[in-house]
Amino acid sequence: MKLRRRKRELYEDSSALSDLAFLLIIYFIVIAGFNINKGFLMNLPARNSTRFILKDDLLRYELDGYGRLLFQGEVREPAAAEQEIRSALGSNPNLAVVLTVDPQTPWQQVVSFVELAQKLQVDSFSFTMKDENNRDPYP
Results as ranks from 00 to 15, higher is better:
residue 23 L to M: 13
residue 132 E to D: 08
residue 86 R to G: 04
residue 101 V to R: 05
residue 98 V to K: 05
residue 73 G to Y: 03
residue 115 E to S: 08
residue 109 Q to D: 01
residue 122 V to R: 01
residue 24 L to W: 10
residue 122 V to A: 04
residue 105 T to P: 05
residue 54 L to K: 12
residue 132 E to M: 07
residue 15 S to W: 08
residue 30 V to D: 08
residue 99 L to D: 06
residue 9 E to I: 12
residue 55 K to A: 13
residue 57 D to V: 07
residue 63 L to D: 02
residue 64 D to C: 03
residue 115 E to H: 03
residue 124 S to I: 00
residue 51 R to P: 03
residue 53 I to L: 10
residue 96 A to D: 03
residue 46 A to F: 05
residue 114 V to I: 11
residue 81 A to Y: 05
residue 19 D to G: 15
residue 87 S to Q: 10
residue 77 E to S: 11
residue 81 A to H: 03
residue 60 R to E: 12
residue 129 M to S: 09
residue 84 E to K: 06
residue 89 L to Q: 12
residue 93 P to Y: 02
residue 78 P to L: 06
residue 29 I to A: 15
residue 17 L to Y: 11
residue 25 I to V: 14
residue 23 L to V: 10
residue 45 P to D: 09
residue 130 K to A: 02
residue 11 Y to R: 15
residue 48 N to S: 03
residue 27 Y to G: 12
residue 21 A to L: 14
residue 84 E to W: 01
residue 91 S to G: 09
residue 55 K to F: 07
residue 76 R to Y: 09
residue 46 A to N: 11
residue 87 S to V: 09
residue 49 S to R: 04
residue 86 R to H: 08
residue 134 N to E: 00
residue 27 Y to I: 14
residue 58 L to V: 11
residue 42 M to I: 10
residue 80 A to H: 00
residue 94 N to L: 03
residue 68 R to S: 09
residue 128 T to Q: 01
residue 117 A to T: 08
residue 120 L to C: 03
residue 116 L to C: 08
residue 124 S to F: 01
residue 78 P to T: 00
residue 14 S to V: 14
residue 116 L to T: 08
residue 31 I to Y: 10
residue 38 K to L: 15
residue 82 E to C: 02
residue 6 R to C: 13
residue 65 G to Q: 07
residue 128 T to G: 05
residue 103 P to N: 04
residue 18 S to N: 12
residue 14 S to Y: 10
residue 20 L to Q: 15
residue 127 F to V: 00
residue 138 Y to M: 10
residue 28 F to E: 15
residue 77 E to P: 04
residue 46 A to W: 01
residue 2 K to V: 12
residue 3 L to W: 09
residue 8 R to C: 08
residue 77 E to F: 02
residue 45 P to T: 07
residue 7 K to F: 04
residue 59 L to W: 05
residue 84 E to L: 15
residue 105 T to A: 13
residue 114 V to K: 04
residue 10 L to I: 08
residue 103 P to H: 07
residue 40 F to P: 07
residue 101 V to Q: 01
residue 57 D to S: 15
residue 17 L to I: 12
residue 65 G to F: 01
residue 138 Y to H: 04
residue 74 E to T: 06
residue 80 A to I: 08
residue 107 W to Q: 09
residue 107 W to F: 07
residue 36 I to A: 11
residue 62 E to K: 09
residue 41 L to K: 11
residue 36 I to P: 06
residue 25 I to G: 13
residue 67 G to Q: 02
residue 76 R to L: 06
residue 81 A to T: 03
residue 73 G to F: 01
residue 48 N to T: 08
residue 17 L to Q: 14
residue 111 V to P: 04
residue 38 K to T: 12
residue 65 G to C: 04
residue 125 F to Y: 10
residue 70 L to M: 10
residue 79 A to H: 06
